[in-house]
Amino acid sequence: MTLFIQQFFNGLSLGGVYCLAAIGLTLVFGVLRIPNLAHGALYMVGAYLTYFFLTSAGVPYILAIALAALVLAGIGIGMERVVFHPLRNAPHTHHMIAAAGAMFFLHSLVQAIWGADFRRMESPITGRVEILGTQVSWQRVTIVITAVVVLIALTWFIKKTVHGQSIEAVEQDRVGASLVGINPNRVSMLTFGLAAALVAVAAGLVAPINLIYPTMGDVIMVKVFAIIILGGLGSIPGAIVGGFTLGLAEAMATTYVSAVAGEVIAFVVLILVLAIRPTGLLTKAVQR
């Protein structure tokens, strides 16, 4: 039972990270109708930036994540302007090629600055806390709390603020949005900035648990794609449910079956969902 509770919290923290990473991807898909293949690379840059602010600049951990998110939001907006905006009227394959190019660019850039070595970011949050008779590390508790806080803030932003509503409006009808005076360009930039900031928070949270290296984004990239397909492309609730489902499934499979099963589970679940409900669990924005 103790093991189960421990793994439950591991799954929850992993799920929180997946959620934050997946929401950005699903938002970008919803607004621009493109799968941003460079999303994993943004995640990786987010981890390096947190590492830089924490170890080289010496700012406190949470502030380091916030700064990384801020810088990455800028990079995200830049990516929208430089990579995707010029292709807005081009066929979708062009977006994919451009995104792959952006991914390689970021890989190389990070490698040029920090090298190809694996790096370890020491967790600044140490110690454990007892929850339901089980020892859970403060780092994981921090991940879950931060993820939940960010998710609540994001939901509030999208549902209650004018700028958030403009994202939903563009997602649901681009022409209608233009006609009420929403500038789709600005919404694209906002969405990319938001997506990048969210993925930076995900990376900053998980960096102390995993190693940091230039291709670290590739693995999570594939899983995050599985999550948003699982949840329904473009759906934020779908990304949240999908993220936590996958996090828990992965933690449980790793513990009770094998480490390899943990890596495979995402795709087993994905295949099952696609077989039973091809539009995803919580399909919303893609029906048109």
Binding site: Q165, E168, G176
Partner: peptide, 21 residues
């Protein structure tokens, strides 16, 4: 029409005021 199909009627209407604020 080009409405925002998943948003409520009221939100559709208030978004109509977007440009005017």
């Amino acid at each position: 029409r080009h409405l925002f199909p998943q948003l409520s009627v009221e939100k559709n209407l208030t978004l109509g005021n977007y440009a005017r604020r």
